[in-house]
């Protein structure tokens, strides 16, 4: 097992001159840690993954592993030499090989019997030994995904890259496979990068999330920190719903209709945005706060979502306990919970 990490530094890939698919990407993948790369479609996630795997060449910056240069500065290590295990979005199982032969494909050394044993061990890790002799078209979607995972893990890669590995599966299966996948990745102890456009999924699987938008990584951190401390409106929206209010800094505070929030580090008179998660918009019992009208009440899990109209005409969303009895048409007063609010540059 390795303790070396994968470094991406200022990576850039251009598909046509002038337009970069990814640019100035900085990322570190640490062994034993699962990093989720979260971003909307077309933000460059897959391109970054492919660049790490050596399937795209860099036009700038570098990718290295430990002391070894993989991409950049004129160098390009061939994909087959990188020890990157990849689980492709369509799984890319070889249709002419059985599950076992698929898993054995990447095993280079050892006798035929040793390879077979190793492949069966790989299938055992994903609980598929009973399907060893099935061909890909005979496997269900979830089984195919697990074979693809076992196949990528079999050669003991230094880095595991998973491109939307759960996207083709139904919701129930997805949750189940997440568990299996993460357990297998942790058991292998490699550095892992999971590409996804699903924020819930990223939060569920990752030790660390890297947020990607318009070809670059805008914030990296633990899931809860990212949720509560976004660096920008874009970063905040990637992880979930939120309301944004314009404000001006006065006496070190950003003043909004919902109340004031400390704005350290912003100049006096600066225009800022105040970002509030739905959990931070509180329906107060008392007479204080901003008056709003309830437009709609939708129970969701253990709480209710209230659609509100604010005095300036805009709509906002608040979250309240399921015991909250406000109905459509009610007038309520709103305050802000500063723990769920954040001041960012305009």
């Amino acid at each position: 097992m390795t303790t070396q990490s994968l470094q991406v530094d200022g990576a850039e890939v251009r598909f046509s001159p002038g337009t970069a698919a990814i640019r100035d990407v900085r990322l570190t993948l640490t062994p034993g840690k699962v990093t989720a790369l979260l971003g909307p479609s077309g933000s460059g996630k897959s391109t970054l993954l492919r660049a790490i795997a050596g399937l795209e060449r860099l036009h700038g910056g570098m990718i290295g592993f430990g002391g070894e240069a993989w991409s950049g500065q004129g160098a390009h290590l061939a994909p087959e030499k990188r020890r990157c295990g990849v689980v492709f979005q369509d799984y890319a199982l070889f249709p002419h090989l059985t599950a076992e032969k698929n898993v054995a494909f990447g095993l280079r050394s050892g006798s035929r019997r040793e390879k077979q044993t190793a492949a069966m061990e790989g299938l055992a890790r994903v609980e598929l030994t009973h399907r060893a002799h099935a061909y890909p078209h005979e496997l269900s979607g979830g089984e195919q995904q697990r074979v693809a995972l076992a196949r990528a893990l079999a050669p003991r890669p230094a880095v595991m890259l998973l491109d939307e590995p759960f996207s083709g599966l139904d919701r129930r299966l997805r949750a189940e496979l997440r568990e299996t996948t993460i357990a297998a990745l942790r058991a292998a102890g490699t550095a892992a990068l999971i590409v996804t456009h699903d924020a819930d999924e990223a939060m569920a699987v990752a030790d660390e999330i890297a947020l990607m938008a318009s070809g670059t990584i805008i914030q990296t951190g633990a899931p809860d920190r990212l949720y509560l401390e976004p660096v920008s409106e874009t970063a905040a929206r990637l992880l979930g719903d939120m309301e944004a209010f314009d404000a001006t800094v006065a006496a070190g505070e950003a003043l909004t209709a919902l109340g004031a929030l400390p704005a350290p580090g912003f100049a006096e008179g600066a225009k800022v945005r105040v970002l509030v998660r739905p959990e931070g918009i509180v329906v107060s019992g008392g007479p204080d706060g901003l008056e709003a009208e309830v437009l709609n009440r939708r129970p969701s899990g253990g709480h209710v979502k209230l659609d509100l109209r604010l005095p300036d005409g805009r709509t906002a969303q608040a979250r309240a306990a399921i015991t909250d009895t406000h109905a459509s048409g009610d007038r309520v007063r709103l305050t802000m919970d500063p723990r769920f609010a954040r001041v960012v540059a305009f």
């Binding site: 399937l55 061939a78 994909p79 087959e80 990849v86 369509d90 070889f94 002419h96 494909f105 196949r151």
Partner: peptide
């Protein structure tokens, strides 16, 4: 039937281009 990701999967599993041709393309 030989999708680009099959090539990429084979490469990421350590197969050189010619090896991809005879271990993946040719059987298919």
């Amino acid at each position: 039937r030989v999708t680009p990701t099959l090539d990429h999967a084979a490469r990421s599993l350590g197969a050189k281009p010619m090896e991809v041709a005879w271990r993946v393309h040719w059987p298919l």
